[in-house]
Amino acid sequence: MAEHLEGRQASPQALETIAKYFPVALVEDAFFQTAHDTLQELGFKRDNTFVLVNTCRDELARPISHFFDKHYGHTFNLSGISGIITAGTLGFIAATSHAPTNPDGRDKYVFIGATHTAVDENGKEGAVVREGQGSVSNACGAIEAILGEIHAGTQQNGTIREDNVEYDTLKKKIFAKNLPAHPTNFDLTKITAQAITHTIEDHIAKTVDPTKSDYAVIVGVQIHAGVKAGLWTPESVIDYFAPVTSYTVIKGVKHELKVEGKKLVVA
């Protein structure tokens, strides 16, 4: 466990929970730094690549966007609650049209997707204390709300309401899966990450021509495990990232990426 989870460490109980349910999790900034370095080696550089970031709208999710803005310049924001994408094909067409012009005529994209959860110092899944609040709340709040509906037997998976499009879309995607008899926050979080992958891949198939473009897809679960010394700064937030899907498609050839030790490498 220790080789995967080092740097700004969470409590031993939190680390135990993370290692049990997300065995390939890395400290978040360490994961994205190694992802950045690997993508650089594969030709995805700041001056030739356009990055599309899709996380939850929650303020807790911001470190991912912050990292890619810092390393790639301005990124395109596709974020929705729990990381569910509702921009549609038109949104992807708009986003991909912003790619820089490259001398070789090939566009380059990096698609980042993440849902999120949390674990407190006692190892309880889904629990987090947000900045300025003294009481425990949940991450992701929408997933916890759906979990509450499931456990109470009150869930409704009917027509999407105009005033609640994202929440109802998330429910439809979760209920489309074979759920465990008594699902947990982590169960629904992992299903949401899978749904994000499928949505991104579906939109890529409709909007990106692999004969003219190269791209990378990295989707996973962002895990909030508190802050160091009570400070809400980028240097003090204790987050981890567990990749669910990671690969590149270069000149039409797919290359899987995997966590090996502390690095994301070509499989």
Score class of each variant (00 low, 15 high):
167 Y>T: 03
185 N>K: 09
198 H>F: 14
86 T>Y: 00
83 G>I: 00
109 Y>I: 13
67 F>I: 02
49 T>S: 10
228 K>S: 14
243 P>L: 08
76 F>G: 06
181 A>E: 04
114 A>S: 15
113 G>F: 15
123 G>F: 05
228 K>Y: 12
69 D>G: 06
163 D>S: 04
130 R>H: 12
180 P>R: 05
14 A>Y: 10
262 K>T: 15
191 I>T: 06
20 K>A: 14
109 Y>L: 13
250 I>Y: 00
188 L>F: 14
138 N>P: 05
54 N>Y: 01
8 R>T: 07
30 A>T: 03
259 V>N: 02
132 G>K: 10
93 I>A: 04
139 A>V: 11
121 E>W: 07
230 G>T: 10
103 P>I: 10
132 G>A: 06
221 V>A: 03
124 K>R: 13
41 E>D: 06
140 C>P: 02
144 E>M: 09
176 A>I: 12
190 K>I: 10
236 S>R: 06
256 E>G: 02
174 I>R: 05
240 Y>S: 10
50 F>P: 00
2 A>Q: 13
5 L>M: 13
228 K>C: 03
165 V>G: 01
1 M>E: 14
209 D>H: 04
135 S>L: 14
149 E>G: 03
205 A>H: 13
94 A>Y: 00
217 V>P: 07
15 L>R: 05
106 R>T: 14
221 V>C: 02
171 K>W: 06
34 T>R: 04
196 I>S: 01
13 Q>N: 14
176 A>V: 08
203 H>I: 08
83 G>K: 01
87 A>M: 09
2 A>V: 09
122 N>R: 11
258 K>E: 07
49 T>W: 08
49 T>V: 09
96 T>Q: 09
79 S>D: 11
267 A>I: 03
234 P>D: 05
96 T>P: 09
97 S>V: 09
261 G>N: 10
188 L>P: 02
2 A>L: 14
119 V>Y: 00
113 G>P: 00
13 Q>C: 09
48 N>R: 04
104 D>H: 12
178 N>L: 09
184 T>G: 12
32 F>Q: 00
36 H>R: 01
176 A>T: 02
139 A>H: 09
208 V>E: 13
29 D>C: 03
89 T>V: 12
146 I>E: 01
23 P>T: 06
215 Y>N: 02
7 G>T: 11
127 A>I: 03
224 H>P: 08
146 I>W: 00
69 D>P: 03
102 N>C: 04
202 D>C: 01
97 S>D: 13
219 V>H: 08
45 K>D: 06
106 R>E: 13
109 Y>N: 10
123 G>D: 10
230 G>V: 14
3 E>H: 11
55 T>Y: 09
68 F>Q: 02
118 A>V: 11
41 E>L: 05
60 L>H: 14
35 A>W: 01
45 K>R: 07
223 I>A: 04
257 L>C: 02
238 I>P: 05
101 T>H: 11
56 C>G: 10
47 D>T: 05
82 S>A: 15
86 T>K: 02
108 K>A: 05
150 I>W: 00
187 D>T: 07
251 K>L: 07
246 S>T: 08
251 K>N: 15
162 E>G: 04
104 D>R: 02
236 S>E: 09
70 K>H: 14
17 T>C: 05
20 K>Y: 08
65 S>E: 15
